[in-house]
Amino acid sequence: MPRLAKTPTPPPPGHVWIDEAARRMSVTVQTLYNYRQQDKGPVGIPSPRRLAYCIDEIDAYLAERRQAAVSAIRAHESRPPEPRLARIADVAA
């Protein structure tokens, strides 16, 4: 008798498995495991043998990172221009 192919278990409603979360965040699965150890990133919910991540938490984390990057760029752009120093040839003329 042939064995039936196992269908993957769907994640809880509103969640994705760790591999899909890593793809959405453009990081590796190992990076998400590292984030979990360092208490960084979205919170993973342990499910039997796998981690599930809430889609809303992933989106919120990405928006927070995007906002922090924009703020850093704007802070750098707000620096006033440095005054130009006169060249010796310009002063002698």
Rank of each mutant, 00 (worst) to 15 (best):
H15E: 09
V16S: 10
W17C: 02
E20I: 08
A21M: 08
R23E: 13
R23C: 09
R23D: 12
S26I: 06
S26T: 10
T28L: 05
T28S: 15
V29Q: 04
V29H: 00
V29N: 05
V29A: 05
Q30G: 09
Q30P: 08
L32E: 01
L32H: 01
L32A: 03
L32F: 06
L32K: 00
Y33A: 02
Y33D: 02
Y35H: 11
Y35C: 02
R36G: 00
Q37L: 12
Q37V: 03
D39Y: 07
D39R: 07
D39G: 07
D39H: 09
K40D: 01
P42A: 11
V43H: 02
G44I: 02
I45W: 04
I45N: 09
I45V: 13
S47L: 10
P48T: 06
P48G: 05
P48N: 04
R49G: 03
R50L: 10
R50G: 05
L51R: 05
A52P: 00
A52Y: 00
Y53C: 06
Y53G: 04
Y53R: 06
C54T: 03
I55M: 06
D56F: 01
E57A: 05
E57T: 03
E57L: 02
I58F: 11
I58E: 08
D59C: 01
Y61T: 11
Y61H: 13
L62I: 09
L62C: 09
L62W: 05
E64V: 13
R65I: 14
R65P: 01
R65S: 13
R65N: 12
R65L: 15
R66K: 13
R66P: 00
R66D: 11
Q67G: 03
Q67N: 08
A68G: 05
A69M: 07
V70T: 11
V70I: 14
V70S: 08
S71C: 08
A72Y: 10
A72I: 07
I73G: 15
I73E: 15
I73S: 15
I73M: 15
R74P: 00
A75D: 14
H76N: 13
E77A: 13
S78C: 10
S78W: 07
R79T: 14
R79Y: 11
P81M: 12
L85T: 14
L85E: 14
L85W: 11
